[in-house]
């Protein structure tokens, strides 16, 4: 266990720096916490559950967005330094901490809750949902909001207003839920340039997702639905609704 690894960590101290600088550390495994606990208490990053489910600790490792608690350092060549930077395409608060307010805003904009108006009538019993109906959206409900997909998507860097993979996948998660009736309301939000159609299908979001959510798939399915709606409204006198 006495293996030595070299980390290069991007530091950004807003009081002193105008942009991030790189510092090198020689550390053991569980490297960032080792640095924080033993070497430099001022190194700043978010983390909590250390089991890949709270979504706090996403960072760039050698240029790739990674959930740092879920990647063994043995994946890396000990002879080479590992470069740790904050998630890209986000504003940096400090060191490895990014500002995630825009992400939260995008998430709430897609109305990620069950929309239906007959809840009162059925209050006492559960809605039935067959295993197949559950499977229809289950994959899209697995998102831990780690934002790796935003850091993989160059559209986020080019057009910060783009809703982005996780938010659209979440909208799709509710659209595909047999208990939900809010598809049209959500389409009104997402069928905009900075909504669905910002996506140019790089597909990187799906590749970096640590939970196999497949946001790229969610977006393409959504585009299909939107295009179908549009065609229907064009061709059929009674429109798409």
């Amino acid at each position: 266990m006495a293996e030595t690894l070299r980390l290069e960590v991007s530091r950004y101290r807003p009081e002193e720096d105008s942009e991030p600088t790189l510092q090198s550390y020689d550390v053991l495994l569980d490297a960032l916490n080792h640095v924080k606990n033993e070497i430099d208490g001022s190194l700043t990053f978010r983390w909590s559950c250390r089991m890949g489910v709270c979504g706090s600790c996403g960072m760039m490792a050698n240029g790739e967005p990674k959930l740092t608690c879920a990647v063994p350092l043995t994946d890396y060549d000990p002879a080479q330094p590992i470069r740790i930077e904050p998630l890209q395409f986000f504003p940096v608060v400090r060191d490895l901490v990014i500002d995630m307010s825009s992400f939260l805003e995008k998430l709430s904009n897609v109305k990620p809750w069950i929309i239906r108006d007959d809840v009162e009538a059925t209050e006492a019993v559960e809605f039935k949902q067959t295993p197949a109906e559950l499977d229809a959206y289950k994959q899209f409900s697995m998102c831990i909001n780690c934002m790796l997909c935003y850091s993989a998507c160059p559209v986020i860097g080019l057009e910060p207003e783009f809703s982005g993979p996780a938010a659209i996948a979440l909208a799709q998660r509710y659209n595909l839920d047999s208990r939900d009736k809010g598809k049209e309301e959500r389409m009104d939000v997402l069928d905009a340039h900075e909504g669905l159609w910002g996506c140019t299908y790089f597909g990187e979001c799906t590749k970096v997702c640590p939970k196999n959510v497949d946001p790229a798939g969610a977006i393409q399915l959504y585009k299909m639905a939107s295009a179908t709606d549009y065609l229907k409204s064009l061709l059929l006198p009674w429109g798409s609704k």
Binding site: V119, A124, F127, P131, E133, L134, D180
Partner: peptide, 21 residues
């Protein structure tokens, strides 16, 4: 009642083949 409430809020509970929780 609380669990059914959470079900109505969209919690993806695992299901029996007949669709019940």
């Amino acid at each position: 009642r609380e669990m059914v409430q959470l079900e109505h809020w969209g919690c993806p509970w695992s299901r029996e083949p007949d669709g019940s929780v």
